[in-house]
Amino acid sequence: MKTKKFTKQELHKIHFRWIWQSQIGWNYERMQGLGYLSTVLPMIEKLYGDNPELKDKALKVHSQFFNTQPAMGDMILGIDVAIEEQNPTAVGIETAAAVKTALMGPFAGIGDTIFGMIAGAVFGSIAASMAVEGSAIGIAIWTVWYACVLFLIRPRLFDMGYTQGIKLVTSLSGQMNALTEAASVLGLTVVGAMIATMVKFPLATLTVKIGTDADGSDLMKEFPLMTYANSIMPALFPALLAALCYWLLGQKWMNSNKLIIAVVVLAIVLRVLGVLA
């Protein structure tokens, strides 16, 4: 069988298709399956265009369920193209399908942690804290990060997948876990700081009648709740509330929408009671 090699241009075109098409047809049935199939159509045409049987097989195999984090999908796509280019047969197609299925879950876990949670937490909290002060610098920094992901990181991920092929999985697994672990450490540190600074729990100063003066007027005493709380620990209540919310989210009957509503109700009740000012 004559070998069909992809040119650099063709490879970039396929990768470009993935970036654009991976999720625009996302649906509950196959998730990114339709996007993946549409992405690799030029590959199928080039490798199996002259063999109707293989083309039919490839179309069916690549229309199966697929879902991963899109940037990590770059790598899977690169590996897939490398496998099928080297072995454009029924066996090659089946190997590629197996690799896709095996990698999408673990890669999604890594990608969601790094590109979703950690980047979202770090850049998001910097951008949000500056935005509420009326500054757009934080959101500018975040946008630069997005551009880096699109123009620097994602092409690199695809190239790594394509050039190293299936070898990548074994050589990278240790590093990937280390990277995810390190990113989590950064995320945890930032969240700790954010709880202290961004959750505003402005306790009121209560004025309570504690008795009657000799001349019959009320004897009042002020209780500066904020001072009391701060003498125990700064940001005591934000920390307690964060712990409570963390616990609540672990309960089966709770979700983020309900929790948001609960916090809004709590704020209103505490305001009415005069505990918060």
Binding site: A121, M194, C245, Y246, S256, V263, V264, A267
Partner: peptide, 14 residues
């Protein structure tokens, strides 16, 4: 006040 408290939900999710 809720506006000042709500970030706690974001951190808890995270």
């Amino acid at each position: 006040l809720a506006g000042g408290l709500l970030p706690v939900v974001g951190f808890a999710i995270l």
